[in-house]
Design a protein around this nucleic acid. Structure first.
Length: 558
RNA sequence: AGCCCCUUGGUGUAAUUGGUAACACAGCUGAUUUUGGUUCAGUAUUUCUAGGUUCGAGUCCUGGGGGGGCUGCCA
């Protein structure tokens, strides 16, 4: 699974190239810094591919990319998420090597920096209530008002901050604030809170601390501590950059990282808000974070989306500062494109109806060779047993076909994929009018050969020998987690477009399918191994997945 | 409302930095095809706007329009 190393550039890579050329940096150190408060989704994939991609591109000069958990808020973070994030990054195909870090391991360092600020007269302990701080911050158009505690002396601040750490304050009774400018047009610079009291158990540090740093204060310090050269984040942090630089300038840091912002990924028809995804999980609308309808990396994985397709997608959409909405069709194309080239093919019948070859003797059988992957002849073919009685897909037969229906109908011809061309001579119905059996005659000597003169055969259908086929339970998934109206996703909550898309199906599959992935037989359901081609009758509609594509990527962790 | 950022076909991006606007996806038409997939050929659609500088502007300047972000003790 190797992508062509691309020469594609973007404004961030241009900045990096310039920094390398000027000698400002000898190599690059980037980082992917998720907060462990949820599962990674397709939007994170963009940041992962960017940061780890840059490290990969500059590997010759010793570049690296850190995986850092930004766990400075104990009230929202859980170890379950740490584990899932590591799995998802690895699955996506990236390796952080030794560079796994936790912001919580730097708590002492953050604290020292805070003390340094106090000593410089650049931070003070504010004992106003949260409400008072909010009310005196001013508005977007009016300056804020100074806290009555703003001009306390260094000694008093030092003592108070020590008492905060010692647990002498309740939550909300005191915070540490940077002393900058209450009249700054950028609200972020109006004496931002940098430490708050929180009597909470931390997943990593336990009860060692009862004061925790705020993101704005901690993040630049984390970057500096790790000698990050380019700190890449999304556009909403743009307004925070002046404070990022302020912290770097005034704290005793070992390096001076630079923050650069890029546009986050927005996909139409796709809910990407962590808060909403969390609600879906908590309220049981989905089976979990890895429900195949979720846009999470683990959900996509279970749907059978190959990691390489996601990587290709991230490369395709590029990096800019433009806040647009990407069409999921771009993602679907990359999935199809990759699967078409790489996925081994197998036949399966999800909604079976019996087909009898009336001119094929009972007891007779033969093995026909079917290519494993038409795009890769070198992958050879497999033998599939053909018998008198077969299962075919119910929807591949129509008693009364419309124009442009190329599959089976009375009097029509169709090819059994890899096998004979057959001719439909009749069918049986039960008392409810359901088709129970289709009768056909096969045309001898048509395996691997063109249709005889005068025979119109425009399609090939899947089939499984009723005698040799294997009955399995599979789960059929349809679309990405989808909402009916992209705008409605904002206001109300999810309306799942196709609530039936998560269904269990009894399917007949060719034995080779199970041989391909023996371990997965058990997990068949869990994996979302089969993703059926929707077999659209609508012309032009392309399936997201090819039919009966065996999704190699979903079980091999490469 | 103040500050910051952004604006190139339907969508996402590119344009040697001031020199013929292009690529992919999606759409449409047709051909091929042992997956209605793939492949191939063809086709429609583009620089938000008004001025300015210039021999020449998607690119530089000014004004306007539009979109996004910011008033957590979240990240």
């Amino acid at each position: 699974m190797s992508e062509a190393s691309s020469t594609k550039s973007d404004f961030i890579r241009e900045i990096i190239a310039a920094d390398l050329a000027s000698g400002k940096h000898e190599t690059t150190v980037t980082r992917f810094p998720p907060e462990p408060n949820g599962y990674l989704h397709i939007g994170h994939a963009k940041a992962i591919c960017l940061n780890f991609g840059i490290a990969r591109e500059n590997a010759a000069s010793g570049a690296r990319c850190h995986l850092r958990f930004d766990d400075t808020n104990p009230s929202k973070e859980e170890v379950e998420y740490v584990q899932s994030i590591k799995e998802d990054v690895a699955w996506l195909g990236f390796d952080w090597g030794e560079n796994l870090f936790f912001a919580s391991d730097y708590f002492e360092f953050f604290h020292d920096c805070a003390v340094a600020l106090i000593e410089k007269g650049l931070a003070y302990v504010d004992q106003q209530s949260a409400e008072e701080i909010k009310n005196t911050r001013g508005t977007l158009t009016e300056p804020g008002k100074a806290s009555p505690f703003r001009d306390r002396g260094v000694t008093e601040n030092l003592e108070l901050f020590a008492r905060m750490r010692a647990g002498e304050f309740k939550e909300g009774e005191a915070v540490l604030r940077a002393k900058i400018d209450m009249a700054a047009p950028n609200v972020v610079m109006r004496d931002p809170v940098i430490y708050r009291v929180m009597h909470a158990h931390h997943h990593n540090t336990g009860d060692a601390w009862c004061i925790y740093p705020m993101y704005d204060f901690a993040h630049p310090l984390e970057d500096a501590k790790e000698h990050i050269t380019h700190s890449l984040c999304t556009l909403e942090f743009e307004i925070h950059r002046p404070f990022y630089d302020w912290v770097i300038e005034h704290c005793p840091v070992p390096a001076k990282p630079r923050q650069i912002e890029f546009a986050r990924l927005n996909l139409n028809y796709t809910v990407m808000s962590k808060r909403k995804l969390l609600t879906l999980v908590k309220e049981g609308h989905v089976s979990g974070w890895d429900d195949p309808r979720m846009p999470t990396l683990s959900g996509l994985r279970r749907r059978g989306v190959p990691a390489a397709a996601i990587r290709n997608f991230c490369e395709r959409i590029g990096i800019t500062k433009f806040n647009g909405v990407t069409d999921v069709a771009l993602l679907e194309f990359e999935i199809r494109d990759y699967l078409n080239k790489e996925a081994p093919r197998r036949m399966a019948v999800l909604d079976p109806v019996k087909l009898v070859l009336t001119n094929y003797d009972e007891g007779r059988s033969e093995e026909v060779a079917v290519p494993n992957n038409p795009e890769k002849p070198e992958e050879g073919s497999r033998q599939v047993k053909l018998t008198r009685e077969l299962w075919i897909e119910r929807e591949d037969f129509m008693e009364d076909p419309p124009k442009k229906f190329f599959r089976l109908f009375p009097g029509g011809y169709v090819r059994l994929r890899g096998g004979y061309i057959i001719h439909c001579t009749g069918f049986q119905k039960d008392e409810h009018g359901n088709i129970t059996e289709i009768e056909c005659e096969y045309l001898p000597d048509t395996i691997g050969k063109d249709a005889p003169e005068g025979v119109k055969c425009k399609a090939a259908i899947h089939w499984v020998s009723a005698e040799a086929g294997v009955h399995a339970r599979v789960r059929l998934y349809d679309r990405l987690f989808t909402v009916e109206n992209p705008d409605a996703a904002e206001g109300g909550f999810v309306s799942v477009l196709n609530p039936d898309s998560l269904q269990t199906v009894h399917a007949w599959v060719e034995p080779a399918l199970l041989e391909t992935a023996p371990e997965e037989i058990v997990q068949f359901e869990r994996l979302g191994y089969f993703v059926a081609d929707r077999h659209e009758h609508v012309r032009g509609a392309k399936p997201v997945f090819n039919r009966t594509v065996a999704l190699r990527d979903s079980w091999s962790r490469k």
